[in-house]
Design a protein around this nucleic acid. Sequence first.
DNA 1: CCACATTAATGAGTGTAATCATATTTCCAT
DNA 2: ATGGAAATATGATTACACTCATTAATGTGG
Lengths: 208, 208
Amino acid sequence: MKPGRRVQKKEKTKQAILKAALELFPAKGFYATTTKAISKKAHIAEGTLFNYFETKEDLALYFLEEELSGVMEWHLANRRLENADIAENLFAIIQHLLERLEPYEEFIGAVYMRALSPTSKLSPFSFESQDRHLRYLRFIREILLEAEADGEIPPVGDFGAYAVGLFQLAILTHWLQDKSRGKEQTLALLDRCLKMATHFLRNGGWNW
Amino acid sequence: MKPGRRVQKKEKTKQAILKAALELFPAKGFYATTTKAISKKAHIAEGTLFNYFETKEDLALYFLEEELSGVMEWHLANRRLENADIAENLFAIIQHLLERLEPYEEFIGAVYMRALSPTSKLSPFSFESQDRHLRYLRFIREILLEAEADGEIPPVGDFGAYAVGLFQLAILTHWLQDKSRGKEQTLALLDRCLKMATHFLRNGGWNW
DNA sequence: CCACATTAATGAGTGTAATCATATTTCCAT
DNA sequence: ATGGAAATATGATTACACTCATTAATGTGG
């Protein structure tokens, strides 16, 4: 079953849009980049862009979602982490995500906060993009469940995953501002917070 | 020094805009309310609105900032809280804020997340609105400093205030979704988190 | 190869936030 | 009071994200 010309062309157009966006967003930022400019650079009509991405925000979020998926795949392939404790595990995951997000530093912050929002009161987002983020939350949930099963931490429920997601947001905002070499400040903070949190959970802070 | 006609009129116009916005935002939500509709209801020209508020978001955030100021004043006037421990103190503050935000529940979430952002990479916000939020962070910092001085908690630095701000954001997103009567779920969560955090800090979790 | 169905591309059109040159109002010094 | 300066209001205009009716390209069954 080889892909027909239609599928091929479609993929090519999508890649052209993404390539154009990835040249403009980092250079001019999310807000100063117009969809018109992206279309032009991708050599397509203005309307075509919206056949591929519902909104300009969705286009920017595509990169985030790709990297979130990438992190999940990477983690699955990285058996070494299966034996790591929960703090190491989460540290590795978040650090890896930050590394992957580096090319998007200049614009991803503008839309990241909204991606997190689980309620329509927060933004006029498509359900689809919420679904995609939910996948990542379920992934985190899985990791926490394993740690629970090993007796590493007490049961933290769905709320645990939600909390980690929020923590990740906090780390990301710190990372965006971090001027230190190699973002070492953020990494130190990340390490410290995770160690504290697991220490806290192990010592019965949660079951109280 | 009585205010001249100019100042009076200006204040009247501002109030008219706020009144109109407060009728439309809760009814239709932030996104479905047009600045044109607000102007019309306030009996002013479309452009006049932007003499008073830089952007539509700024207009919505005005209500938040008023309430943040209100919370600070309220806290200052409430001597009872000076002797309360840090958990009670923060609980009272955040609960009070949530109560005050109730009238804006339908639209404040749409802009709240952005107000928090301390970096221009996150949003095209005016510096002014960042300043206003900084005032609140300094207020939180003050409260934490008092608790530090009393030996209630170890020194948590500016980061402590930042963390509380982020925590408040987390609580707010929970609150927006909370369908329980009187938002009691959120209040229970708030109580639990604060008690855990102070317990944690007191037991040397931070100084590690 | 051809009709015709399905899918994708197009760009003029729309709605709306925000701007800006101009007009109007208020203030104040004489 | 009056003229001119400063502040404020105005709404036509702009810029932009996004829509949609139409056109073009591709796939398919006979």
